[in-house]
Amino acid sequence: MISPEPGHNNKPILAVSSLTKMFGGVKAQDNISFSIQPGIVCGLIGPNGAGKTTLFNLITGIYSPDEGQVVFNGKDTRKMTVDQRVRAGIARTFQHVELFGSMTLLENVLVGMHVRTRSGFWGAVTRLPWVIREEKEAVEKAEALLEFTGLMDYAHHPAGDLPVGRQKTAEIARALASDPLLLLLDEPAAGLNAVETEALGKLIEQVKKRGVTMMLVEHDMSLAMGICDKMIVLDQGSKLAEGTPREIQNNEAVMAAYLGQG
């Protein structure tokens, strides 16, 4: 059914086959199939309204597809709820920042760790030793993540008070807190200045070094070309092209779609 791409022997971490999703009369996803090998950064590009965010929503289980399936890490996700998918290792960021504004940055990251910790109501009330230990470990891990993303200075600031650039990075930190295998980044560079964009590129490289597979929606071509191992181009819900950045750059259909857009 899903044929592994030539040259890669290992199993794909994400395999999407004939995914279709309609909104009223709009075909937001039209028979999309592709697969992603573990450890790579896959760019997802396309003009506005191409269906990139919708694809993320289908993979994370916010929407359910009309047809087709998403296989993650060898498991069919059809019956999985959103939180089960996060537990299985899918994390995401949002196109428009969706941090928990009144909570501190540290707390945001701790919420990101929700599926990896387990104390509940009784744990909170009784504060047994294991709960305290879990909390302590969680805080340490969260601080390590903030250190890693360079946000440690803001740890105790309300997330809503941060500048936009920091908020974008903070979303990545929060997503990483769930120890994802696959990280979906929806336009992480939108609203960043040149310096911040460069730092973001470096951060993505480092996340990649940790072995996290990524999908990246990006309009900034120079950034995308630089860090992606592979690219998928969507246009009006259908897959236009797929290949290495160089192949995409020279693809005529892609040029036409972008130029046609104006």
């Binding site: 939180d83 969706e98 941090l99 701790l110 919420v111 744990g123 909170a124 909390e135 807190a177 769930s178």
Partner: peptide, 21 residues
């Protein structure tokens, strides 16, 4: 606690709190 943080996160933004699991 973990539960309280999750609770407050719902108040701040339910869709993000769903998305983090």
């Amino acid at each position: 606690s973990r539960m309280g943080r999750a609770l407050r996160s719902i108040h701040d933004g339910e869709k993000a709190s769903l998305a983090v699991g």
